[in-house]
Every structure is written in structure tokens, then in C-alpha cells.
């Protein structure tokens, strides 16, 4: 079982308490009516789906119930870090350090 660190509880806990919630750092357009159909489609459906480091949302649904962000390697399933929603994404240097 994966063990996931919740940045709110500050504990590393079993995956069963958590739910995956899609790619992170996707801002909802402030004025959707200004968008073209293609832009709206991209916002709703087009995701980066990388092989490797993925910035994604998780929710500690059966714990503190908060959403937070994580960087997970989609090949190894290793979580490099987790951090509270609203914080900037970790820099490449920080991630390199974490991956070592």
C-alpha cells in the first residue's frame, strides 16, 4: 500500500484514507463566457498526462478531508512531496533534491 504524507495532518498515512483528484495547478477561468470552445475544452479535458513527475491533487477524504497537492512519479509511483493547496509548485531544483 502507498503511504501518503498529508500536509494538514502532518502524518504519513495509508493510501486507503485518500482519494486522487486529478491534475493540480489548473486555474478555473475567471470569465468562462470569454473563452472560445477550444479553450473551454482544453480547460475541462486536456491534461498533461506525463510519464514521470506529475503535479496532482489528492484529498485526505477519510481523515482531515482537506484537498492538497502532490508530486508523484507516474512510473515508480513514488511521492516526491506533498504541499498545501495554494502554495507554489516546487521548483525543479527542489524536486531534483527530493528525488535523490
Amino acid at each position: 500500500m502507498l503511504m501518503i504524507h498529508c500536509p494538514h495532518c502532518e502524518e504519513t498515512l495509508p493510501e486507503l484514507e485518500f482519494a486522487y483528484a486529478g491534475e493540480a495547478h489548473i486555474d478555473r477561468p475567471v470569465k468562462p463566457s470569454d473563452l472560445s470552445d477550444e479553450e473551454w475544452r482544453d480547460f475541462l479535458f486536456i491534461r498533461s498526462n506525463p510519464r514521470g513527475q506529475h503535479f496532482e491533487r489528492w484529498r485526505h477524504v477519510h481523515g482531515c478531508a482537506r484537498f492538497f497537492n502532490a508530486v508523484r512519479d507516474t512510473v515508480s509511483d513514488q511521492f516526491l512531496t506533498t504541499y498545501k493547496s495554494g502554495l507554489p509548485r516546487p521548483t525543479e531544483d527542489e524536486l531534483k533534491e527530493l528525488a535523490r
Binding site: M1, E11, L13, P14, L16, E17, H62, G63, C64, A65
Partner: peptide
Amino acid sequence: CPRDLSQLAVGSGTRTLFDS
């Protein structure tokens, strides 16, 4: 319960799972 309850301090509580 998937959580290690020995880590939960006496006199505290949590939301968690019991058989899903």
C-alpha cells in the same frame, strides 16, 4: 483499520476507516 492506532495519542481522536 488501515491506520496504525498505536500512533494515535491517548486522549485524541481521528476520522479513519474500518473495513472500508
